[in-house]
Amino acid sequence: MRLSTCSPVLLLPARRSRPSWSSPGRRPEPVSGCRRVVPVATGSSWWHCRRGAGCVCTTGWTCGGASRPSTRTRSRVLLARLHTVAPAVRHEPDGAPPQGWYEAPPGAAGWDRLAAEAVGAGTSWSSRLAAATASISALSAALGPADPDRLRLCHRDLHPENVLTDGSGELVVVDWDDVGPADPTRELAGALVLCFHDGTPDLDAMRRAYAAYVEAGGPGRLRTRADFSMLLSTRFNFLHAQARVALDPTATPRERAWAEEEVDEGLRTLPTPELLDAVLDAVGRTSPVEPGGMPFSVS
Rank of each mutant, 00 (worst) to 15 (best):
M1F: 10
L3R: 00
C6K: 01
L12H: 08
L12T: 05
P13F: 06
P28N: 05
C34G: 15
R35V: 15
R36A: 15
P39N: 02
A41Y: 12
H48W: 10
G60Y: 10
W61K: 10
T62S: 03
S75C: 01
R81Q: 02
H83I: 08
E92Q: 08
E92K: 00
A104E: 15
L114R: 07
L114Q: 06
W125M: 09
S126H: 14
S126W: 13
I136E: 02
L139T: 05
L153D: 01
L153V: 03
H155T: 03
R156A: 03
V163D: 11
G169F: 11
V173G: 11
D175P: 02
V179R: 04
P181K: 06
L192M: 02
H197N: 15
T200L: 02
D204E: 13
M206D: 07
R207L: 06
G217S: 09
R221A: 06
R223Y: 02
S229K: 00
L231A: 06
L231R: 00
S233F: 03
R235Y: 09
R235T: 12
A241E: 12
A243N: 03
R244T: 14
V245K: 00
T250L: 08
E261A: 04
D264L: 04
T269M: 07
T269H: 07
L270R: 11
L275A: 10
L280G: 04
D281K: 13
D281T: 11
M294A: 15
P295D: 14
F296C: 13
